[in-house]
């Protein structure tokens, strides 16, 4: 068993990486939260589903790479072509989910509205979870820099269980930074807020789509 100091390191690394995690997940999480019902509970439920799926994405990736026996050697390589390829594919998938989300939220104009398949305003719980889980899983797989750093550290641990525990504590550290997102629950929901969120989702989706295609084509994302 790894020493407790290692796990406090995982927690500290997670806490220190919070701003980067917020930055990475913000463009996906904020607009999707804004299409939810107002209130603390719906936001807490959505965040829980989103973060759980994000953790699942982390752990699945960690196990897969560990089982391949190449975590240590593969992570640096992920910065090269395979990483660009994976990131490109994830960005395109994220864009598709966001577009689907924005389309599904078209009927969401207030707490009494219905018709949405993904958004919780008038929709069933399973649909609500599906949207959050899809976005959480994809952001979990998007290999943000703190995740890569945690992966490198976890790779030095003697066993897969310790590595998973390390990742979990790292995840807990980062998740503390997501608590302020619950504050969006206080924002009143009306047609204006939901429309703004949907339009923002489309713009962000187009951005991710362009970025994803550029990564798949191995093109630079800058024009200078």
């Amino acid at each position: 068993m790894a020493p407790p100091v290692l796990f406090s390191e995982a927690l500290a690394l997670g806490l220190a990486s919070g701003p980067a995690c917020i930055a990475a997940c913000g463009p996906v999480l904020v607009p999707s939260l804004l299409t939810q019902q107002a209130g603390f509970r719906p936001h807490a439920r959505y965040l829980a589903a989103f973060l759980s799926a994000r953790l699942l994405g982390y752990l699945l990736f960690a196990i897969a790479v560990w089982e391949l026996g190449a975590l240590a050697s593969m992570l640096p390589a992920l910065h090269m072509l395979p990483r660009a390829f994976l990131m490109g594919a994830v960005n395109i998938l994220l864009a598709c989910v966001l577009l689907w989300y924005a389309y599904s939220a078209r009927h969401a104009c207030g707490q009494s509205c219905s018709g949405s398949k993904l958004v919780n305003i008038g929709a069933t719980t399973s649909h609500r979870a599906a949207g959050a889980v899809a976005l959480g899983l994809l952001t979990g797989l998007s290999l943000c820099p703190p995740f890569v750093a945690a992966g490198v550290r976890a790779a030095q641990l003697p066993g897969v269980v310790q590595a998973l525990l390390f990742f979990t504590l790292f995840f807990v550290g980062t998740s503390v930074w997501f608590v302020p997102f619950l504050g969006l629950g206080c924002l009143v929901r009306n047609q204006a807020v939901v429309t703004v969120a949907r339009m923002a989702m489309v713009l962000i989706a187009l951005y991710y789509l362009a970025l994803g295609i550029a990564m798949l084509m191995e093109k630079k994302a800058y024009g200078y």
Binding site: I22, A23, A24, G26, P27, V30, P31, Q191, A192, T195, V196, A197, R198, M199, A200, V202, L203, I204, Y207, L211
Partner: peptide, 25 residues
């Protein structure tokens, strides 16, 4: 008339993307 929410959507999207990608999006 819902297009009048456009500026707020562009603001929200650009503020979040500028943070995520660390560029003046």
């Amino acid at each position: 008339p819902r297009w009048r929410y456009g500026p707020w959507a562009v603001l929200l999207a650009m503020a979040l993307l500028s943070l995520a990608l660390f560029e003046p999006a």
